[in-house]
Design a protein around this nucleic acid. Structure first.
Lengths: 148, 148
DNA sequence: AGACATCTAATGCCAACGCATTTAATGAAG
DNA sequence: CTTCATTAAATGCGTTGGCATTAGATGTCT
C-alpha cells in the first residue's frame, strides 16, 4: 500500500465522515423545526415537495419512494400517514389497477406552502457552503494532523 | 424576491437533495455489505472505528455518541448490542462513577480490521467524487440558465 | 381459455432510533 | 452535614424503517 493510497483512503473516509456529520446536523434541525412548527417530519415534507413539484400534481407511489428515498413498504406507510392527516388522497389508477396515484389535497398544498419557508430557512442556516476546493493534490496526504 | 434569491434557494435545495440521495445510496450499500459479510450495521462499524482510532482505545459514552452521530439513548443501546456480541466491554470510570468507559475487546478489534476493507471498498465504489467546483459565485445568480 | 412469471401495493414482524423519564453520582450552596 | 441543581447512563414508550410475505392485477405463452 503506497503513501498515496493511504492518503486517498483517508480523503475518502473524511469525505464520508463529513457527509455523515452534515446529514445528521441538517436532518436533525429539519426534523425539529418541521415537527415543532408544522407537525410533520422530514420524510413527510420531502414527499409533499415531490407531489407539489410533480408535473400533474399526482404521483405514482414509486415516484414518491424515489423522492423520499424510502423503501416501497415505508412509502406505503408514509402515504397512509399523510392520508390519515388529510394531506394527500389515494386514487385508483384506471390504466393499471395494481397501482395507485397519490395526489395533494388543498390542505396538503397549504401545509407544504407553509412549511417550505421553514425548510429553506433551516437549510440556509445549517447546510454548510461547499468548500471552494482546497488547493491540494487529491491523491497525496495533505496534512493528516488530527481533527475533531 | 429577486432572481438571484430564487437561484440561491434552488442551489441550496439542490445541494440538500444531492446530499440526501448520496447519503441514502452509500448508507444503503454499506448497510448491506457490512451486514452480509460481517454481521454488523453502519452504526456499529462507525462506533468500532471510533474506538479503534481513539487515542487510548477506550472512550467515554459521549464520545461514542459523537462518533456514531446518535442520541444518548441510542448510544446506550448500541453499546449494549456491541457488548452482547462480545465486541466491546464496559468499564467503570473510577474518576466519575456516573460515567462509563467503553473499550474494544480483541474480538472487536479483529472484526473491525476485517470490516474496514469492506467499508473502504463500498465507499470507493458508491461515494461520488466531489465535483471540481463549477465556476460560480455563491450569492449572485451566475447563469440561471436551466434548472431541472 | 388456462397456467405462469412479473409487477404493485399492503401488511406482519422486528430492529433501531429519539424523547421523556428514571436512577445514581457529583458538586455547589446554605 | 444537608439540600438542590446538574450531569451520565439506562430504560419505557411510541414511531419509523426495512425485509419478507401476501394479495391482487397484468401480460405472455401455449
Amino acid at each position: 500500500m503506497s503513501v498515496s493510497d493511504v492518503g486517498a483512503e483517508r480523503a475518502l473516509v473524511d469525505r464520508w465522515q463529513r457527509l455523515l456529520a452534515c446529514h445528521a446536523a441538517v436532518w436533525g434541525a429539519l426534523e425539529r423545526e418541521l415537527q415543532n412548527r408544522h407537525g410533520i417530519g422530514v420524510s413527510e415534507f420531502e414527499a409533499l415537495e415531490g407531489l407539489a413539484t410533480c408535473d400533474h400534481e399526482k404521483c405514482r407511489a414509486a415516484e414518491l419512494a424515489d423522492a423520499a428515498h424510502l423503501s416501497q413498504s415505508a412509502t406505503s406507510r408514509l402515504t397512509a400517514r399523510l392520508e390519515r392527516a388529510g394531506l394527500v388522497q389515494r386514487a385508483m389508477c384506471d390504466m393499471d389497477r395494481r397501482g395507485i396515484f397519490v395526489l395533494l389535497t388543498e390542505k396538503g398544498r397549504r401545509l407544504y406552502e407553509e412549511a417550505r419557508p421553514t425548510h429553506r430557512e433551516v437549510l440556509a442556516e445549517v447546510l454548510p457552503e461547499p468548500e471552494p476546493a482546497k488547493a491540494s493534490a487529491p491523491t497525496s496526504a495533505p496534512t493528516p494532523a488530527n481533527g475533531r
